[in-house]
């Protein structure tokens, strides 16, 4: 569930403190998330990888930043750089947190690797006043086309594992995700459709076009009736 491992992007978990996420190099989807978070808020980043987002939030926005990371090397890198991160995962380690413990809970590119995505989503909007969730869109046209034409499980830029070694066990389309939120009473406050590099498109996430053209979706969620 290590973010860098899932995405295969150029984030070196052994990087030194000085190298961690200078503002200019924060991945664009993480930058988008960071821009939504108010200064001085309390944030939990689940699957925080090498802590790039946490380090940025702590440094630039004086955020009380916490993280959960599955990989040993990721956790050790984070804590060695002074970040508050625990070794754990979204399936096992969210239950203990009290309700509304955080202003924001971030689950970036990790939902598809959880065992119980529905329970995880419900936990996110319980422990966070808002949850920011992003995931690769399995309805992306290249994925559909790849499966249609090649008849093999798609391997794309965001889903760069083969079927037998992928940590991504619960892939979904943007439309699937919206349907689940509706079914379990999770309010979608904001939504973005993004290309592979995390740059936003101006598409309605509930529309057909978004489900076809966006490589990833990002949603700001909260619990209905709160």
């Amino acid at each position: 569930m290590s973010r860098s491992a899932t995405l295969g992007l150029a984030i070196d978990t052994a990087s030194t403190a000085a190298e961690i996420a200078p503002p200019a190099t924060l991945r664009s989807d993480l930058r988008l998330i960071a821009d939504m978070i108010e200064p001085h808020s309390r944030v939990l980043d689940i699957g925080c990888g090498d802590g790039a987002l946490l380090a940025y939030l702590a440094r630039e926005k004086s955020v009380d930043a916490r993280g959960i990371e599955l990989s040993q090397s990721g956790v050790n890198a984070c804590v060695s750089h002074g970040l508050s991160v625990i070794q754990g995962d979204a399936d096992r380690d969210l239950g203990a947190y009290p309700g509304a413990a955080f202003e924001y809970v971030v689950l970036s590119q990790t939902l598809q690797a959880t065992r119980e995505p529905r329970q995880v989503l419900e936990a996110l909007v319980r422990i966070g006043k808002r949850a920011i969730v992003s995931f690769p869109n399995f309805g992306f046209w290249r994925i559909r086309l790849s499966l249609l034409l090649r008849g093999r499980m798609p391997v794309s830029g965001l889903l760069n594992h083969r079927w037998y070694d992928t940590p991504n066990i619960h892939l979904c389309t943007i439309r699937d995700f919206v349907a689940l939120c509706d079914a379990v009473g999770i309010r979608i406050e904001r939504s973005f459709t993004l290309d592979r590099h995390g740059r936003p498109y101006s598409l309605d996430p509930r529309g057909n076009l978004a489900n076809l053209l966006a490589e990833q979706g990002m949603f700001v969620l909260s619990r209905e009736g709160v």
């Binding site: 984070c78 508050s84 991160v85 625990i86 754990g88 947190y97």
Partner: peptide, 8 residues
């Protein structure tokens, strides 16, 4: 909701 790091 304590500030906690955990390393194994």
């Amino acid at each position: 909701a304590a500030n906690v790091s955990f390393v194994e």
